[in-house]
Design a protein around this nucleic acid. Sequence first.
RNA 1: GGCGGCAUAGCCAAGUGGUAAGGCAGCGGUCUGCAAAACCGCUAUUCACCAGUUCGAAUCUGGUUGCCGCCUCCA
Length: 489
Amino acid sequence: MLRIYNTLTRKKEIFKPIDPGKVGIYVCGVTVYDSCHVGHARSMVVFDVIVRYLRFSGYSVRYIRNFTDVDDKIIRRANSDGTDIDTISDRYIKEFHVDMDALGVERASVEPRATDHIDAIIDVIGKLMAKEHAYEKSGDVFFAVDTIKEYGKLSGRKLEDMEAGARVEVDRRKRNPMDFALWKSAKPGEPFWESPWGKGRPGWHIECSAMSARYLGPHFDIHGGGKDLIFPHHENEIAQSEGAFEVPFANYWIHNGFVNINHEKMSKSLGNFLTIEDILKQFHPEAVRLFLLSNHYRSPVDFSNEAVSETEKGLHRMYALLERIAEFAQAQSGSGTSVSRNAFEEISQFTAGLAGRFKENMDDDFNTARVVGLLFDAVHRLNRFMDELSGPASREINDLLLSGKEAIVGIGRILGILTLDPREFFGKKQDKTLMSAQIDEAAVEKLIAERTAARKNKDWARADEIRDLLAAMDIVIEDRHNKTVWKVR
RNA sequence: GGCGGCAUAGCCAAGUGGUAAGGCAGCGGUCUGCAAAACCGCUAUUCACCAGUUCGAAUCUGGUUGCCGCCUCCA
């Protein structure tokens, strides 16, 4: 039974979809005016895993993730680049997809753009006007927050408290300082659309109310996004949608925590952000995912090269185990060595219980951190088990190892890690390092052959010399029973 | 000023009433020509601090201290 922490009630609640077996989920995507950073990556990875898990749990999921493609920042960017907003949005939507594909984040069912839904937006504003939740002042349309009794229920604020703390200069045309724009009249040189209130463009929040209703209906299951969107964005979405459609909006609100750098929020204005492109130059995408998923999605996570490097070592360890099992399976012959019954039973039971424990942890508010621990535990146990085997394994043992591998890879599929063949994983890593260091693979093989010959002649000095040489190139070698393998550090 | 969160070993990090997962680093050992990898053992009688509730608390309550986020565009 899945339990989800709901921001609306500040409690973990049992998840009950509106339509049994189906889930409608809307996640606030990005404003496409610049490259994505690690903070965006976290949000996208977190919800990617949530959606994958919901599907794995048997739900038919309709996942909507929008692009905000008209707003002040995009307009500013277009002006400074001497082009129009469509050019800017198209460029960064394309880049978003390149980044997300690299990170293994799946596409949403629908990825709507605000500018493709101006009619739907105008329609919702019209409803709000008709119901007197909104008013027009010289071409601008504002939402009247005090027409909604429950305004503030998501963020836990009261209108009075916020007024006391308001620091921004208030637009004097607003009835209440907390009123927000639904429609902004066009200033000279700005892009605009025709509307009953004149030429203009939508405010920030209204697109999500319009597009979620369009693709999921006015009342749906889950709405997600970064913690920073709780107020005012999501609060205002609730006000708009419930005001216009007079039904409850989203049942469950899920918010992910931030990515920090040196304990400070990563953000454009602080200038401490790392783009996804930047970090993928340095780390394997699965290492980035594993790093992000090693923390609970609601906690802040501190990003550093050291931390991701550590995670990458862990990923390396997981792949090494998968490779080891694959080699065992390959080497298997009819009559193999056996192990103690106890060891066999222990691994049997553990392997059989893996999927159940995975589900248990994920059902508890998507506790991916625990799942990662579970994976490492599995890696450790299987390694220990294989250490007991002195030669080719029996068929029975082989099957057991392969089922363990299947269980691990199956869990990895939901997290979006361990998706590669181990040889491909280590190979890619090799290519990258070899390329950047301009090392020739054939040369490495040649050195290793030379070392093997030296070892045969018990010329340990030469053998160690070659190993040091390789180490200087970040190449680590492992002498196995019958061959020497090498990997990039 | 208002609202919310966090504080667990050298570092990262799970754990929200039943006696501290996991990873990284370190030390000792097995294996190895030596290594590497893997494995074994060791590394928090204790969960910021102080009171309280309870048979029992890292987990609940009250208080103290420190850090952070939101209240303005923000994943």
